[in-house]
Simulated assay, not measured.
Amino acid sequence: MGDDVPVSLDLSNYELLWPTSLFVSEGERILRSKGSWQDRATWLMTEALAGTTAVADFEDLPNHTAPIDDPWADPATSWGAKRAVMDQHDWFTELIMRAPELRHATAPRPYWPQRRGNGPAHDGSTARDTRRDFARLIGEFADSGYLVEAFGEECVDDHSELPDASAVIDRRLGIPNLWPLAPETWDEDTFYGLMEVFHDLVSRPRMRAFHSYGGCGWHHSEFHNGPARVLYRWKVNQLLREAGIEYELAAEGEDLGRLVTVTDDARSTLVHRALNDSAPDITTRIRHAIALFRGRDTSAESKRSAIVTLAGILEERRPLIKEQVGKADEGALFEIANRYNLRHRRADQHGDYDEAFMDWIFWWYLATVELTNQLISARSIT
């Protein structure tokens, strides 16, 4: 937006329902698009911002769509020209630029009945409540067209047979008759399995059009699974945190979109750097080691395999470690893997140690891999 256009956008009445970075990336894509960008912008704001205030403010503004090189255009209203008032393009551009200033929508403070301990009755099962919350979340995604690419969409003018949604899920999960969702029937494996399946099924429609004939309703198009999966992970992980469930859907790695054990921010950052900063020749092994270690169904044996994988990478980099870290420390690094029944599994090795020991070794070895990545990178620069 040029310096000549007045900045008057009031963000105080808008609240985000999406991660800020996703809202910005989808908004920037709209600003780069051609054609009916206003429809895409309206749909984005309908999805990503609470209530209808932002859309109403947007629609109240003038729409100056004439390109500046149009000989018939009014120079006072053409894009890029000096204007006394903000138009839709200016307004939406500023909204996206200033998105980091938007506050996120939060649950309202408890009302009188909740404060008095007379809120809605539950069945006594937190797990059951969480399953119902997840089913409602999937319903919201379905209502917004995020399952149309997988399940199809009814139209009064199209009598083609739609895919069987239950069969689509069954082919992935191996459990029949799961659609429509019935959370009261799920055991834990089904519940967590559906979380992972829907991660792979959602796809965001970037366009929608209203079909008024016969009360048909909205039709969705221009699907992309990337932003849908980002949003899905964000919402599901928020649900899991609120329920006190110590799993989350992985955002990267071999186990992308699968439930993994929650770690602290520092370890999450380490995982991200190890996955993204490693050389191509070891990236696959690192991805595999991380997936083995943090999976929901991980075991002592899979943790041991993860450590062995990282130890193999460090063995290949042993000369570098010896040179940069020192021979004594280098020896200690490998002595642990060799003496504690992790790699060679000999009779004279120690095996009676707590599983927490393997957690410590894994994170130490992953941090050392990341350290050697930095040393190699620094060497290549010099």
Rank of each mutant, 00 (worst) to 15 (best):
W37H: 01
A73P: 08
A356Q: 12
L239S: 11
W364N: 15
F223L: 12
G117D: 00
F141T: 10
K303E: 12
R40G: 04
V369R: 03
R379L: 09
S221M: 05
A76N: 11
G117C: 04
V5D: 03
V7D: 13
L231C: 03
A251I: 09
S268L: 01
A56G: 10
H272C: 11
A127N: 12
A84L: 08
L375M: 14
P75E: 08
D123F: 03
R204H: 10
R128C: 00
A165R: 03
D39N: 15
D10E: 09
R343N: 05
R233Y: 04
S12Y: 07
S8A: 11
N63S: 14
R131M: 13
Y365F: 14
I286F: 01
N63T: 14
R343A: 14
Y111G: 05
P62F: 05
S268D: 14
V148C: 01
L249T: 00
G326A: 05
R136N: 13
L61D: 13
P113G: 07
R285F: 13
W360M: 11
W112D: 06
E153G: 09
G312R: 11
D329H: 09
G214M: 06
A279H: 06
K303T: 12
M1R: 03
A328P: 01
P280T: 10
H220R: 10
D143G: 07
E330S: 10
L61Q: 08
I175W: 01
L270P: 05
L95H: 05
R136K: 12
T309R: 09
E154M: 03
M207H: 08
A378T: 06
V325L: 15
L342V: 11
S25E: 15
G139I: 02
E188I: 12
E15V: 02
W91Q: 05
E370D: 15
A81N: 15
D74A: 07
L181G: 02
N177A: 13
R32D: 01
A41D: 06
E94T: 07
L137C: 04
L371E: 06
P319H: 06
Y213Q: 06
H211R: 15
E28L: 12
V5L: 08
F357P: 02
R109H: 05
G351E: 13
L366I: 06
P108M: 06
V260M: 07
Y340I: 01
E330I: 00
P280I: 11
T20I: 14
S302H: 01
D90G: 01
D359G: 04
S166T: 14
E26T: 13
H219P: 03
S144Y: 04
R296G: 06
R131T: 04
Q374P: 03
F191P: 05
A66Q: 15
G193Y: 07
G124R: 04
M97D: 11
G217V: 03
H350R: 14
M358A: 04
R29C: 13
D200R: 15
P280S: 09
A228W: 09
R208Y: 08
R345G: 08
D265P: 02
